[in-house]
Design a protein around this nucleic acid. Structure first.
Length: 804
RNA sequence: GCGGGUAUGGCGGAAUUGGCAGACGCGCCAGAUUUAGGAUCUGGUGGUAACUCCGUGCAGGUUCAAGUCCUGUUACCCGCACCA
């Protein structure tokens, strides 16, 4: 047996794969296709993380198996290369981000290649390539033309450290998702994308998709659909104040009203208000608070009564006071609520604090102690024509009444906000818009795309909130494409999520100069059959790209309404101490070291064997050895080849069972048990002591998706002819997965007392008779009364007894 | 607070519809081989002195039979967080 030199052998096959282009997806659209996708990485300066191979290997196994099963597989890779870390690194070291990106990509690529992934490198994409972002800009123009991209003066999340706007999805508990610094509110004119217009479809269409449940739930919660009603109150000043409520049934219990501090009526009423100074003070205090502070004061409600104007409840004409309080958000609903302290916890707290009346309108709780919010059990009381009804009935009746009187209507609201799409930085796609004094926002003609990012002296963001691009006057100053007058370019850039919102489409036809991809290519390859990626992208990349895809579908660019048929998510790989891997914790594992010490095959195998793919798992350096040992034992089989060509009688069933198990487990993302099954099979072969050529042939193909280098080398050494990639995936025969005789368990009162070898198709009566004839069972039955006898096919006999 | 998830040996983890708990791997123990170490091979390995005993976070329940189903409860993890 030749010594297995990991380094040379792995390099040898990686080079061969690259030369032969064996993993390039074929342009033959008549073949059955399979599109496997993993999230393309951000090429950071840190290099590959052990988390990347977990996702990449899992789908590499799927891709390699699908190819062996005869599919035309597309398994591409590329670079999501715009972004802040590169830009910050460039600022610090005075290197152009383009250069940094290039270097980082080179390193990432070399690392990915060293792991033997079967990516189609001929389709590599890079979001920072003008040939690529030309189409990102093109999509933006389509959004603009359809009115889905608009510029608006509004309060946005401003990261004090990045000096840049952040989307709602990028703010995590009041701080910047990227750098952890404080996020404050700032009023700025921003480009926005109308993702809210797609809110309902983004929820509804999830039902048809094969996404893991927690992804669906998280997206639904984020979009946050709620069904209720808008109700018109009248103010004593004459205006109509519309409130949004999910409980119109409790309208009779509304004892006051609360509007958000930013509500426009306050200014309107300013002259009439006797305590305007107090109100102004409260407004100012609220505006100074960051999101973080607002959530911190969550517990204690504050507010000020508006003296001089009150509201009139439309259902009973009752005059009720109006308050301003920051627990009512200007951005949700109408910015005003009717307060029903008897049946809403927040209103109850507020009413207690300000000593406001609490009226019970749904019986069943004790509203002296707490708000009664249950909708299922209560009965309406003190509610005029609603009294006596259930909550559900009351909701129907009050809506009828509101519509009849013209005082309100049904209304659906979403928590989802429009997507803040501008960033005041350098390293991103320029927004292809010209601002003309006469014509307003004018889209750049498509023929002028790509609008290339200009060279600048300094990438440093400015404190006044302007993009570094604003300083390049020769770029900024242009002429209006519409009227020809002098005009200025938009200087904000797109967020990092722009390029990744459609990259999977470009892979279908990456070099197309006339379209983001050809109709035929999109028709054939999309939708993506299986997409794996991190949970952290559920409300960011995944939601954004579904939105863009739906838009592209609506304008006839793509053939399907959803981009991904199936979405799975890998668990994090933790440090050996069970904590998240991080430089500061000193528990980072570098994939390069593992490849160097054990080889890519072992690395791949270990990451698949580590545990349930969807769960987090701690790294265990000594466990890796077991995977290497397994591969060495398979390699050593070449010296154990004995007589015969097919499966030996002793191992035939075992082989059929293992093929079945591995085949099914790969499709179910259960590589851990697939590997365990192959280890078991190998142990059985070692028990037998010899292996036939046929057995070795099958095992080599079966193991190939997991350990592609070693299996190719073994295939060559054995002289099987060709390469494993030319072979077909092994078949199994269901009938041969079963043994003729099986061992069943004989129980008394559910406790195992004996074991029997019986024919697999034994009948109930016969099985029970055999069990009773068993020595141990017979003696245990002595002096007992038999109550019940059961036989579970292929599993066990259970005899239930009682003392005589 | 709301939504989702997890809990099984010394460790990572297995266990279609309820049907032999602990597959597979690590670690550990013993033996073989080796000058030694390492590597490799063989056997053993939930607890218990032992059992026909006990054992899947905890307390109950359903069942011939429960890691799996039901009720309650604890701890931890993730997401959202004044969304009316």
């Amino acid at each position: 047996m030749l010594n297995y030199d990991v380094k040379t052998v792995e390099k040898k096959w990686q080079d061969k794969w690259e030369e032969s282009g064996v993993f390039h997806a074929k342009q033959d659209f008549s073949l059955p296709k399979y599109y496997c996708l993993v999230e393309f990485p951000y090429p950071s300066g840190q290099g590959l993380h052990v988390g990347h191979p977990r996702s990449n290997t899992a789908l590499d196994i799927v891709a390699r198996k699908k190819r062996l099963q005869g599919y035309n597989v597309l398994y591409p890779m590329g670079w999501d290369a715009f972004g802040l870390p590169t830009e910050n690194y460039a600022i610090k070291n005075h290197i152009h981000p383009e250069k940094v990106t290039k270097e980082n990509i080179a390193r990432f690529k070399q690392q990915l290649k060293s792991l033997g992934f079967s990516f189609d490198w001929s389709r590599e994409v890079n979001t920072t390539d003008p040939d690529y972002y030309k189409w990102t800009q093109w999509i933006f123009l389509q959004l603009f033309n359809k009115g889905l991209a608009y510029k608006k003066e509004m309060s946005v999340n401003w990261c004090t450290s990045c000096k840049c706007v952040r989307a709602n999805e990028e703010v995590v508990s009041g701080v910047c998702e990227r750098c952890g610094s404080e996020v404050v509110h700032k009023v700025k004119s921003q480009w926005m994308l109308k993702i809210t217009q797609y809110a309902q479809r983004l929820i509804d269409d999830l039902d048809e998709l094969d996404y893991i449940e927690r992804v669906k739930i998280q997206q639904k919660n984020w979009i946050g659909c709620s069904k209720g009603a808008e109700v018109d109150f009248t103010s004593t000043a004459g205006e109509i104040i519309t409130v949004y409520t999910t409980r119109p049934d409790t309208l009779f219990g509304a004892t006051y009203m609360v509007v958000s501090p930013e509500h426009p009526y306050i200014e309107k009423w300013a002259d009439r208000l006797t305590n305007i100074d107090e109100i102004r003070e409260y407004q100012q205090a609220a505006s100074r608070k960051s999101d973080f502070e607002r959530t911190e004061v969550n517990k204690d409600k504050t507010g000020v009564e508006i003296k001089g104007v009150s509201a009139i409840n439309p259902v009973n004409g009752m005059k009720i006071p109006i308050f301003i309080s920051d627990y009512v958000l200007v951005s949700y609903g109408t910015g005003a609520i009717m307060a029903v302290p008897g049946h809403d916890t927040r209103d109850w707290e507020f009413a207690k604090k300000f000593n406001l009346p609490i009226i019970e309108v749904v019986s069943g709780g004790d509203i002296e102690k707490e708000a009664f919010t249950d909708c299922d059990t209560g009965v309406m009381v003190n509610s005029g024509f609603l009294s006596g009804l259930s909550v559900e009935e009351a909701k129907v009746e009050i809506l009828k009444w509101l519509i009849e009187k013209g005082k309100g209507h049904e209304k659906v609201n979403y928590k989802l906000r429009d997507w803040v799409f501008s960033r005041q930085r350098y390293w991103g796609e320029p927004i292809p818009i010209v601002i003309c004094d006469k014509c307003g926002f004018v889209p750049l003609p498509e023929t002028e795309l790509p609008l290339v990012l200009p060279q600048v002296e300094s990438y440093e963001p400015t404190d006044n909130g302007e993009s570094p691009l604003a300083q390049i006057t020769q770029w900024v100053n242009t002429t209006c494409p519409h009227c020809g007058a002098p005009a200025k370019r938009e200087t904000d850039i797109m967020p990092q999520w722009a390029g990744s919102s459609w990259y999977f489409l470009r892979y279908c036809d990456p070099h197309n100069e006339n379209a983001l991809a050809s109709k035929e290519a999109l028709e054939y390859w999309t939708p993506v059959d299986w997409y794996n990626g991190g949970m952290e992208h559920t409300t960011l990349h995944l939601l954004y790209s579904r939105f863009w895809h739906k838009f592209l579908y609506d304008i006839g660019v793509v053939p399907t309404g959803e981009p991904y048929l199936k979405r799975t998510s890998h668990g994090m790989i933790l440090g050996a101490n069970g904590e998240k891997m991080s430089k500061s914790r000193g528990n980072v594992i570098n994939p390069d070291d593992i490849v160097k010490d054990y080889g890519a095959d072992t690395m791949r195998l270990y990451e698949m064997f580590i545990g349930d793919f969807e769960k987090a798992a701690p790294w265990n350096s000594s466990s890796i050895k077991g995977c290497r040992r397994f591969l060495d034992r398979v390699w050593a089989l070449q010296d154990m080849v004995g007589e015969g060509s097919g499966y030996s009688p002793k191992l035939e069933n075992e082989f059929h069972r293992t093929i079945k198990k591995v085949t099914e487990d790969i499709d179910n993302l259960k590589s851990n048990t697939a590997i365990a099954a192959m280890m078991s099979l190998l142990n059985k072969i070692y028990e037998v002591g010899t292996v036939t050529l046929g057995e070795l042939n099958t095992l080599t193909i079966l193991l190939n998706p997991f350990a592609p280098h070693m299996t190719e080398e073994l295939w060559e050494v054995m002289g099987f002819g060709g390469t494993v990639t030319d072979q077909s995936w092994p078949e199994y025969d269901d009938g041969k997965c079963r043994e003729d005789t099986i061992e069943i368990v004989a129980q008394i009162n559910g406790k195992v007392r004996s074991r029997l070898n019986v024919s697999a198709d034994i009948e109930t009566g016969e099985a029970i008779a055999l069990a009773k004839a068993d020595e141990k069972i017979a003696s245990a039955l002595k002096g007992k009364r038999i109550i019940k006898e059961l036989y579970v096919k292929g599993k066990l006999v259970n005899i239930v007894v009682k003392p005589q």
